[in-house]
């Protein structure tokens, strides 16, 4: 793996909130990158094709966004609820919001 990629992987680990010792992942990441890079040899075949995000390319039919019992039911299995909100530790370093 190139040095640039190693540094970049560290950055990605921070972004996906899995920030631990990269050492144990480097070897496997190298193997996965080798697999990913196999696509290089197919570039000529695909360069003019549009990406296919979804196998059947059907238009998505949006349904009405109706508020139902789901939120209440989810909250029933949630611990640390107070006044309908999920409580979590403070986010430090962020200025406290002041009422206008």
């Amino acid at each position: 793996m190139k040095e640039l990629d190693k540094k970049y992987i560290l950055k990605i680990m921070r972004l996906v909130m899995i920030e631990e010792d990269p050492g144990k992942y480097i070897e496997d990441i190298d193997k996965i990158l080798n697999l990913f890079n196999e696509l290089d040899s197919f570039e000529e075949n695909v360069k003019d094709l549009p990406p296919l995000y979804h196998p059947l390319e059907q238009p998505g039919m949006l349904r009405p966004d109706i508020i139902n019992q789901c939120k209440i039911e989810i909250n029933e299995v949630t611990t640390n609820i107070s006044d309908g909100y999920v409580s979590s530790p403070p986010i430090r370093g962020v200025k406290k919001f002041k009422e206008p």
């Binding site: 970049y8 075949n45 695909v46 360069k47 990406p51 296919l52």
Partner: peptide, 17 residues
Amino acid sequence: YEGRYYIRSLKVRRWIK
């Protein structure tokens, strides 16, 4: 890296299909 990996893989997906 998106173009080299993710977008290219989606193009390959169309080619395979």
